[in-house]
Design a binder for these strands. Structure first.
Lengths: 343, 343
DNA sequence: GTGAAAGCGCTAACAC
DNA sequence: GTGTTAGCGCTTTCAC
C-alpha cells in the first residue's frame, strides 16, 4: 500500500512552468499576457501549464500591475434593491473578468470605515457604493488618495466620483400624478430619511405632482418613516388617526410600503376601497397581491450596465476622463391598488 | 500660486515607515502583526503610520502568508434566499475580518468554472457555495488541490467539504402535516428540479406527511416546475385542469409559489376558500398578503452563523479537523392561506 | 522574440 | 526586542 499523500503539493509557479518548458520566465509571462510568442514555445508552454495544473497567482501579479480585477461594493444591507443590483452587477462584471467584493456596513460608521480600509488594503480596482451622508467626510480622503468610486442611488455632492442615479423625482411625480389624476386630493407620503438625497428627490417628485395639479400640500400628510418597515407601520396608523385622513398613500420604498400595508391589513382598511396605495420599489409579490400594488420598479439592470460601462472605461487605457453622471428612468406599473374618487 | 499636484503620490510602504521611524522593517512588520514591541518604538511607528497614511498592502502580505481574508461565495443568482444569506454572511464575516467575494454563475457550467478559477487564482481562503449537480465533477479537482469548500443548501455527496443544511425534509413534512390536519386529502406539490437534493428532500417531506396521515399519494398531484416562477404558473394551471383538482397546494420555493399565486389570482380562484396554499421560503410580502401565506422561512441567520463558525475553526490554527455537517431547523409560520375542509 | 535580472511590499528566519 | 536578509510569484525593463 502506498503512502497516503498528506501534505498538499505546492502549487506550480511560473518558474516551474518555465523550467519544464525550457524557456525563461519572461517568456511564460508574455504568453500568459497574450503577447506574441514563437509558435513552438507557445505550444510547449500551453502543454506544460496543462500538465502542471499551473494557475497564475493573482496576488503576485497585482503587486506588479497594481490591478486586482476586484471591485468593492459597499452597501448598507443586502436587501431587495441592493441584492437585485448586486445580481446584475456580478453578471456584467463577469464579462469583463472582474468579481465583486461585498461589504455591508449596516449604516454604522465603524463598519463603513472597516469596509473602506479593507477595500483599500486589498487594492480593489474601484468601489461602488450607495452614498450616505454620514460617510461623505470619511470617504473624501480615500478619494484624494486615488480610490476610484462610483456612487449610485444616493448622491454625495462635491465628491469626485462617477455617478449612476435613478430619476427618482420624475418617477415619484408620475406615481403621484396617477393618484391625483384619479381625483384624490388628500394623498400622503411616507418618505425616507431626508438626509438621503433619494428621500428628498422622491419627496420633491411628490410635491411636483401636487403643484402640477394645483393641489395644496398638507404638512400632516408628509411623514418620515426613515426607510423602515416598522415606522412605515406606525406612520400609517398616525395618518389614519388624523381627523381628516388621506384617501391615498405613497410609500417611498419597499420596506415602508410593506409596513403601511401591514397596518392597513391589521385594521381591516381595504385597498383600494378605503384607501389607495402606491409604492416605490416593485417586487414580484406586489403583482400577486390582491389587489396588485401600483409601483415603480427600480431599473437595476440598466444601473448595473451603466456602472460597468463607466468602470470599463475608467479602468481601461486612458481612463482619465472627467467624472460622469448618468440618470436612468424608472418604469411605473399600474395595478389595482388605486381607485377613482367619486366627486 | 503653487503647482497643482497631478500625479498621485505612491502609497507609503513598510520601508517608508521603517525609515521615518528609524527602525527596521521587521520591527514595523511585527508591530503591524501585533507582536511585542518596545513602547518607544511602538509609539513612534504608530505616529509615522498615521502621518504617512500608511496602509498594509494585503496582496503583498498574502504572498507570504498565503491567506487573503477573502471568502468566495458562488451562487446561481442573487435572489431572495441567497441575498438574505449573503447579507448575514457579510455581517458575520466582518467580525472575523473577512469579506465575501461574490460570483454568480447563472447555472452555466462555463461561468461556474470562471468563478472557481477566479477564486483559485485570487487564493481566497475558502469558498462557500450552493451545491449543484452539474458542478460536482468540476469541483472535485479544486478540492483535491486544496480548496476549502463549504456547501450549503444543496448537497453534493462524496465531496470532501463542510456542509450546512436546512432540515428541508422535516420542515416540508410539517408544512404538509398542517394541511393534512385540516382535512385535505388532495394536496399537490409543485417541486423543484429533482437533481437538486433540496428538491428531493422537500418532496420526501411531503411524502412523509402523506404517509403519516395515511393519505395515498396521487402522482398527478406531484409536479416539477424546476424552481421557476413561470413554470410554477403553468403547473398551477395544469393542476387546476385536472378532473379532480387538488384542494391544497404546496409551493416548494418562493418563485414557484409566486407563479402559482399569479395563476390563481388571474383565474379568480380564491385562497383559502377555493384552494389552500403553503410555501417554502417566507418573505415580508407573504405576511401582508390577503390572506397571509403560511410558509416556512429559511433560517438564513443560523446558516450564516454556522458557516462562519466552521470557517473560523478551519482557517484558525489547527484547522485540520474532520469535515462537519450541520443541519438547521426551519420555522413554519401559520397564516390564513389554508382552511379546514368540511367533511 | 527571448533570457537575465531587478524589483513590487511584505513576512519570517536568523543572528545579535 | 531588533536589524538584516532571503524569498513569496509575478511583470517588466534591458540587452541581445
Amino acid at each position: 500500500m502506498t503512502d497516503q499523500v498528506i501534505t498538499r503539493a505546492r502549487p506550480a509557479t511560473i518558474i516551474d512552468v518555465a523550467r519544464a518548458a525550457g524557456v525563461a520566465v519572461g517568456t511564460v509571462s508574455r504568453y500568459l499576457n497574450g503577447q506574441p510568442i514563437r509558435g513552438g514555445n507557445r505550444d510547449r508552454i500551453a502543454q506544460v501549464i496543462d500538465e502542471l495544473g499551473y494557475r497564475r497567482n493573482s496576488a503576485a501579479a497585482s503587486m506588479k500591475t497594481n490591478t486586482t480585477h476586484i471591485v468593492g461594493l459597499l452597501v448598507p444591507a443586502v436587501g431587495e434593491f441592493h441584492a437585485a443590483l448586486l445580481d446584475r452587477l456580478t453578471r456584467r462584471m463577469r464579462q469583463t473578468g472582474r468579481a465583486v467584493l461585498c461589504y455591508c456596513h449596516d449604516t454604522e460608521p465603524t463598519s463603513f470605515m472597516e469596509g473602506l480600509e479593507f477595500f483599500a488594503g486589498h487594492r480593489v480596482d474601484a468601489v461602488v457604493m450607495d452614498g450616505n451622508e454620514d460617510l461623505r467626510q470619511r470617504l473624501a480622503p480615500y478619494i484624494a488618495e486615488g480610490m476610484l468610486v462610483v456612487l449610485y442611488d444616493n448622491d454625495l455632492p462635491e465628491l469626485s466620483a462617477d455617478r449612476v442615479f435613478v430619476e427618482n423625482r420624475r418617477a415619484s411625480k408620475r406615481l403621484v400624478d396617477h393618484v391625483l389624476d384619479l381625483g384624490h386630493e388628500r394623498v400622503a407620503i411616507i418618505h425616507g430619511n431626508l438626509r438621503d438625497s433619494v428621500a428628498r428627490d422622491r419627496l420633491e417628485g411628490y410635491r411636483d405632482a401636487l403643484k402640477a395639479h394645483g393641489v395644496p400640500e398638507h404638512p400632516e400628510l408628509v411623514v418620515d418613516a426613515g426607510w423602515n418597515e416598522y415606522r412605515g407601520y406606525t406612520c400609517m396608523g398616525d395618518l389614519m388617526a388624523l381627523p381628516n385622513p388621506p384617501t391615498a398613500v405613497f410609500g417611498a420604498n419597499y420596506n415602508m410600503s410593506i409596513g403601511a400595508l401591514r397596518w392597513l391589513r391589521e385594521h381591516d382598511v381595504s385597498i383600494p376601497e378605503d384607501i389607495s396605495l402606491v409604492s416605490f420599489d416593485d417586487v414580484p409579490a406586489f403583482s400577486v397581491h390582491s389587489p396588485g400594488i401600483t409601483a415603480v420598479g427600480q431599473p437595476v439592470d440598466k444601473m448595473a450596465e451603466a456602472i460597468v460601462s463607466i468602470l470599463t472605461e475608467r479602468l481601461g487605457p486612458n481612463g482619465a476622463l472627467g467624472k460622469r453622471t448618468m440618470r436612468i428612468d424608472a418604469e411605473i406599473t399600474l395595478r389595482g391598488s388605486t381607485r377613482r374618487l367619486r366627486r
